[in-house]
């Protein structure tokens, strides 16, 4: 049996918001260590890897591994009904047909209970070996979201170029071009505002802007985002959770 209680429903709301536009159906795999999701978008360009660690829950119990096949659009309709500050509890039997979603208001004696029908989903699980990256950038997630939104208005591609001194985000469209250059710096007072650039080899990669626009929907999960890049390889974009992470792997574009 699974019984997981969150101190606030806001974490699950943000997680669902962050992934629902990339994938529609996915298995939530529940183990004694927490909840994981791995899912690939229909075009097989973007992969989502989520870990909500046991410590993200106020109370957590999962005696046997349980798979919850969830339609995220339906789940989102239910999860939106809770207030962000409500306790949120997920309950499922060992071989469940549905999952119970319970919201409890902390001040009033109001309990809202919903049941979501589960689906039997096939999922190709992809093997992601430990990848070696040539460059790692950590920056404020809101700044990365703004750069993405701004440059996406010019072109359907977004180029990321990393040199020793800086990282350049660039787009080249029909009516014009744009770029944003960031240098590494340390903000002692607000560490989350810092920009850290680690580069072993220079990088020049191009990605589909629409996919990065989906990735930045994770912005509300974390103050900062880490971007890991390697030549001619998928990039990794990571938002850290209080215990766990939301990672996106995005395949690059190549010259034909």
């Amino acid at each position: 049996m699974l019984e997981g209680k969150f101190e606030e429903s806001s974490l699950m709301k943000k997680v669902v918001d962050a992934i629902k536009d990339s994938v529609k159906l996915c298995n939530f795999n529940c183990t004694e260590h927490g909840v994981t999701v791995q899912a690939v978008d229909d075009s097989r360009v973007l992969l989502i890897s989520l870990l909500i660690g046991e410590a993200s829950f106020e109370e957590y119990r999962c005696d046997r591994n349980i798979t919850l096949g969830i339609d995220l659009e339906s789940f989102n309709k239910i999860i939106k009904n809770g207030n962000s500050s409500d306790f949120l509890t997920l309950i499922a039997e060992d071989s469940p047909d549905n999952v119970l979603i319970i919201f409890e208001d902390k001040k009033k004696d109001r309990v809202s209970e919903y049941s979501l029908k589960l689906m039997d989903l096939d999922s190709d699980f992809l093997q992601i070996d430990d990848m070696e990256f040539d460059a790692t950038i950590t920056m404020p997630s809101s700044e990365f979201a703004k750069i993405t939104r701004d440059l996406k208005t010019l072109s359907e591609s977004l180029q990321i170029i990393v040199t020793k001194e800086n990282v350049k985000f660039s787009s080249d469209g029909d009516f014009g071009t744009g770029n944003v250059v960031l240098k590494g710096f340390v903000d002692m007072d607000k560490p989350d505002e810092s920009i850290k650039i680690d580069m072993a080899r220079p990088i020049n990669l191009t990605f589909g802007a629409k996919y990065i626009a989906d990735i930045v929907k994770g912005t509300s999960l974390s103050e900062s985002v880490t971007i890991k890049l390697a030549d001619k390889s998928p990039a990794l974009f990571e938002y850290k959770l209080p215990s766990g992470f939301l990672r996106f792997y995005l395949a690059p574009k190549f010259d034909e």
Binding site: R44, L47, L126, Q127, T206, A251, K253, F254
Partner: peptide, 14 residues
């Protein structure tokens, strides 16, 4: 013109 790569070219099925 650049062509979008698939993740399947990089990651194997388990």
């Amino acid at each position: 013109k650049k062509k979008q790569a698939s993740l399947m070219a990089f990651f194997g099925k388990k």
